[in-house]
Write a protein that binds this DNA or RNA. Structure first.
Lengths: 140, 140
DNA sequence: GCTTGACCTGGAGTACACTCCAGGTGCGAT
DNA sequence: ATCGCACCTGGAGTGTACTCCAGGTCAAGC
């Protein structure tokens, strides 16, 4: 079974060594084995778990929830339904987040388009009877 | 021109009154007019600007960048190209964020699927010659 | 044996974006 | 006139997730 030093794990997971230590301290990383001298040795299992942690973290799951998930995992097989529920809820949250992001992105693109138009006609002050269309407002 | 009290603006924008005051303090909200008694009066322009702020904030733009954008807006029409660039960069960042989110969501769904399978066959220990397929790892 | 660089610990510090508080004021309604 | 609520200010406090530090240890290479 392959073993990894903290530096290697940092490299592979993108978490800093300090973050790895922090995760261990708060219990997000459990019983990491050590050398006789006290140095951490990570296994492929740890890498796998950290992969999931990264995934959940990057999708906005708060650490408290990841901790809860970790505890469920440690608590044995009969927590599988609870774990599933947690993940499914999170999946739904991610789905919503993506939708919201896309909606807001549309607004940003509208704004960009609006700027492109302004730029093109260099604020045509001679336009007759300016109806002060739709909106500036948004750019003060 | 319609006017709004702090409470009304909070209601319409979803920002708390404290947040509105905070935004004014740091310069994200500029020269909000006041009554003779010192109370804030918001205009439709302010609402429009706050709409953009919400949009940028919700898509993850740090306050420092929004401040920069606000300053460009105040600096006059010749900053339009700079504003455009800022928005375009942000749009690209949002695009990337969405893509990343979708990729991670796929992994979460795989994990969910993996759990559903485990659940279904209740860890079939009698399976012949388990090749220890792909991965647990990820659930410790 | 000694150097050197990666690693260790406990605890303090940081960045970001608010959020809360105490003590005081403005103003519409009774 | 006075009540009461929304609002004001400056400043301190909060939550989240790290990140940094001092002072010490381990172990591979010369």
């Amino acid at each position: 079974m392959t073993q990894y030093s903290p530096a290697q794990v940092a490299e592979k997971t993108g978490f800093s060594i300090d973050t790895l230590r922090y995760y261990e301290r708060i219990g997000l990383l459990h019983h990491v084995t050590r050398t006789t001298g006290g140095r951490r040795i990570f296994t492929d299992d740890d890498l796998g778990w950290l992969g999931l942690v990264r995934c959940l973290r990057d999708t906005g799951m708060p650490i408290a929830d990841m901790l809860r998930f970790a505890e469920l995992c440690r608590a044995g097989d009969d927590t599988v339904p609870a774990r599933l529920e947690l993940l499914e809820q999170h999946d739904a949250a991610v789905q919503e987040k993506i939708a919201h992001l896309r909606a807001q992105q549309r607004r940003i693109r509208d704004k960009i388009q609006w700027y492109r138009n302004t730029e093109g006609c260099q604020v045509d002050r001679s336009a007759p009877a300016d109806r002060s269309d739709s909106a500036e407002a948004v750019s003060r």
